[in-house]
């Protein structure tokens, strides 16, 4: 059925795309953080986010109100991320990258199973901190939920950016990503910087999970699709570029939403394949992404 085009509808699609995109951007940024320091894609990123979102659910279930539960969850996520690096990644950090990748895949499966075992497989409703109504901005109806999601994700990203830009530890983490050997000579304890990176990535994932859960509902496979969008976003932006990951996430959110709405055969069902097609296209045409460095291999 052909749809009549209206700018109000278009604006609505863009804003809800931006909200979804902010979630992809957070997860994509988490992937990039770990990729830059460890040189591997963390396949468990989504399940780590799901697990921490369940923790938030439990905290609220036990009577904590939303924002205290939110903050406490971020702290737990940070500790969990650091712990994962120290206990699971560190023992294999000098091994070939494929070994580390397999560890993250193992972690994905283990966390997924553990989530189902602790909280059960049934879908749970997850509270939203934002009212369930809409605002009208010049004819474009925007849900407050979308605005809130967008703002929380973006605020998190900005805090992470400021941390890397302005703090000594953030600087050391960037230095470790560029040149770990030289960092050691500067007195940096490289291992702990890597662990911190995992902690931050886990925090970003937890924010994304808690923002996504009210709309996609809480279940053990909740982040699966989001993780694939985040992969596509990170590749689109350039897998080693934090700015690229955020821009890639937002662009992907909007594009996928518009495709689903205006390209008839895409609809709801072909959104994910569209993202994968985009991922493939970027890898073929511009492997370094929009913002990534072109890899120069020294021979």
């Amino acid at each position: 059925m052909p749809l009549a085009f209206s700018w109000a509808d278009f604006g609505q699609q863009v804003t809800s795309g931006l909200a979804a995109g902010a979630i992809y951007a957070s997860v994509a940024l988490a992937l990039v953080l770990i990729y830059r320091s460890t040189d591997v894609v963390n396949f468990a990123q989504g399940e780590m986010a799901t697990f921490t979102t369940y923790i938030a659910w439990s905290l609220m279930h036990h009577g904590l109100s939303y924002w205290p539960a939110f903050v406490l969850t971020l702290l737990i996520a940070f500790g969990g991320g650091v712990g994962v690096e120290r206990l699971l990644i560190r023992p294999v950090e000098r091994r070939p990258e494929i070994v580390i990748v397999i560890v993250t895949i193992g972690l994905l499966i283990a966390l997924n199973g553990l989530t189902g075992w602790i909280w059960g497989p049934e879908v749970k409703a997850f509270d939203s901190p934002f009212p369930n109504n809409t605002v009208d901005v010049g004819g474009v109806v925007i849900s407050v939920q979308d605005i809130g999601t967008f703002c929380v994700c973006l605020a998190t990203v900005l805090v992470v950016w400021a941390f890397f830009r302005f703090t000594t530890v953030g600087l050391a983490m960037r230095a470790v990503a560029v040149n770990p050997d030289a960092s050691r000579l500067m007195g940096v304890r490289v291992g702990w910087m890597l662990a911190l990176g995992w902690g931050l990535a886990a925090v970003l994932g937890a924010v994304a999970g808690m923002m996504a859960a009210p709309t996609v509902f809480l279940d053990p496979d909740m982040m699966l699709v989001i993780l694939i969008y985040a992969f596509a976003a990170a590749v689109l932006g350039g897998i080693d570029s934090p700015v690229g990951a955020v821009v890639g996430g937002l662009v992907l959110g909007v594009v996928i939403n518009l495709l689903g709405r205006y390209v008839n055969f895409v609809g709801q069902e072909l959104r994910l394949p569209s993202a994968l097609a985009l991922l493939l296209l970027v890898l073929l045409i511009r492997p370094s992404g929009l913002f990534g460095r072109v890899a120069v291999r020294r021979v």
């Binding site: 000594t168 600087l171 050391a172 960037r174 230095a175 560029v178 040149n179 050997d181 030289a182 960092s183 000579l185 500067m186 007195g187 940096v188």
Partner: peptide, 28 residues
């Protein structure tokens, strides 16, 4: 130790490289 090949943080700025030099003694 200024290592073989200098070991600079090539993607960081000159100032950020100097900041890293100060890292272990309290940067600012």
């Amino acid at each position: 130790h200024v290592p073989e090949g200098r070991g600079l943080f090539s993607e960081l700025t000159v100032w950020e490289n100097l900041r890293m030099g100060a890292y272990m003694r309290g940067e600012r």
